[in-house]
Amino acid sequence: MRDVKQAVYICEDEKVLSDAMAMELSNRYEVFVSETGREAMEAARAGKVAILVMDRKLNGADGLALVEELRASGDRTPVLMISAMGAVDDRVAGLRAGGDDYLVKPFAMSEFSARVDALARRLAGDNATVLRAGPLQMDLIARRVRRAGREIELLPREFKLLEYFMRRPGILVTRKMLLEEVWNYRFHTQTNVVDVHLRNLRVKLDAPDEKRLIVNLRGEGFLLDASA
């Protein structure tokens, strides 16, 4: 059996789809399948699973409610939400519930596999002292940031903000997520603190002849584009 830290629990009640997803991952992960999600929740809390793949609509269960319950208990197991509901509001709802990524059905198995692998890499990076994303390198001990060898001086909040993005390269991040995770705000606010800090961070990250690394997704949020 593979290391339990590389176990993936798929919560999907469409057997044809769950079988295909399990087969796609089986050569790299220990895979379990649940039609209701409850077994997966218990496995996550017991530390027996590294990643959850959670459908929004399950037999007798609401995937969003399960993820919210998991986060309320303090569990940080990475969750990939999957759903046929692909509108912006639906994707944002999945992320706000505590999902780390959101994949819309129907999807290619190669993309599904890549999303799971990305969560696994991020999970492994939680214990790393040096983060890398494209041309960016962040030394968490020395508190230094470099872009293609160029050192970038950041204020403490800017450093924390960039670290949040570097642990989620290519993944949509909303203002609410940043306010809760970087500023520890737990209430609704009209503050523009996110936009101000992002503007200052971009000025430091992007030289005039360099491409913008943190990009806006209009009406959705932001992502770190670490691609070449």
Rank of each mutant, 00 (worst) to 15 (best):
R199D: 05
F222D: 07
M109K: 15
L64A: 13
V173R: 09
N184H: 12
S113T: 11
L103Q: 10
V53F: 01
R212Q: 15
R175Q: 13
A226T: 00
R76H: 12
Y29P: 13
K48N: 11
M138C: 05
M41W: 14
L131H: 07
L178F: 09
R199M: 00
L162I: 01
I214T: 12
Y9V: 04
D75G: 02
M54N: 11
D126Q: 12
R186K: 14
I51D: 09
D126R: 12
A7V: 00
F165V: 02
V203R: 15
H188Y: 05
R91Y: 00
V16C: 07
V4M: 06
T174Q: 13
I82A: 02
R147T: 04
Y164W: 05
Q190Y: 05
D101G: 01
L161Q: 03
E42I: 14
M21F: 09
F112A: 10
I171R: 15
I214P: 14
V33T: 13
V79L: 10
P106E: 06
A118C: 10
A133S: 15
R157V: 02
L213E: 11
V194W: 03
L64Y: 14
V67Y: 04
P208S: 11
T174C: 13
M1S: 13
A46T: 10
A207M: 13
P208A: 09
V49E: 04
G170D: 08
A120I: 05
V193N: 07
A7S: 15
D75N: 14
V104D: 02
L131E: 06
T36P: 00
D3G: 11
L140Q: 08
D195H: 05
E68D: 12
A50D: 11
G98N: 07
V194Y: 03
V53T: 07
L223V: 01
I10Y: 01
M85D: 04
Y29T: 01
E12K: 05
E151A: 09
V196I: 13
D126C: 02
T189G: 06
R157Q: 02
L162P: 03
T174I: 06
E220W: 02
A228G: 15
G219L: 11
